[in-house]
């Protein structure tokens, strides 16, 4: 079952840190700058309160996104990589989680008068970016090119 050298176990850990290290700053520093000018909360809610609720939910989503990245890593560790690279699994996990994130956002985020498309864009980023960072650059060698864009990404270092 365990088909990889033990040193590979460090990769998921680094992937988690990378996912959180990118996802959380984007959520806490970049997205407020994007959403503040475009979102109009429902009457009676200040933009600060809305952003706070948004941040709370999305922090959970970022963490879950990284957890989905761990699921990906687990699948690569269980699979030898001989017959395929599990790219469909990677894509499937991403799409499923994106759908879940959108559903959660629709259900849990306070409604707004304006800015829905910006919000959903940020939700998509929060769902996919940490997952991508946790997986694309730190997948174990036998499946490292399964994530889209990983070949180009890995050329950077």
């Amino acid at each position: 079952m365990f088909n990889k050298p033990r040193s590979s176990l460090a990769l998921p850990v680094i992937g988690v840190l990378a996912g959180l290290g990118v996802g959380l700053p984007v959520l806490y520093f970049l997205e407020p700058l994007v959403l503040d000018p475009v979102v109009s909360p429902q009457a009676g809610q200040t933009i600060e309160d809305w952003l706070r609720e948004f941040r709370q939910l999305e922090t959970l989503l970022v963490i879950l996104s990284v957890a989905v990245g761990l699921l990906w890593h687990a699948s690569t560790f269980l699979d030898a990589g001989r017959s395929g690279d599990l790219r469909l699994v990677w894509v499937g996990l991403g799409i499923l989680f994106l759908a879940f994130a959108c559903w959660m956002a629709v259900r849990r985020l306070p409604s707004v008068q304006e800015g829905s498309s910006g919000i959903m864009l940020c939700v998509a980023v929060n769902a996919l970016l940490p997952y991508y960072m946790a997986s694309a650059a730190f997948t174990v060698a036998s499946h490292k090119y399964a994530p889209w864009g990983s070949r180009a990404l890995r050329k950077l270092w």
């Binding site: 979102v39 109009s40 909360p41 429902q42 009457a43 009676g44 200040t46 933009i47 600060e48 008068q113």
Partner: peptide
């Protein structure tokens, strides 16, 4: 008060 409509307006504390 209970805010019913805030069209074109955004409440902001800061």
């Amino acid at each position: 008060t209970k805010r019913l409509i805030e069209q074109g307006l955004v409440e902001r504390r800061s």
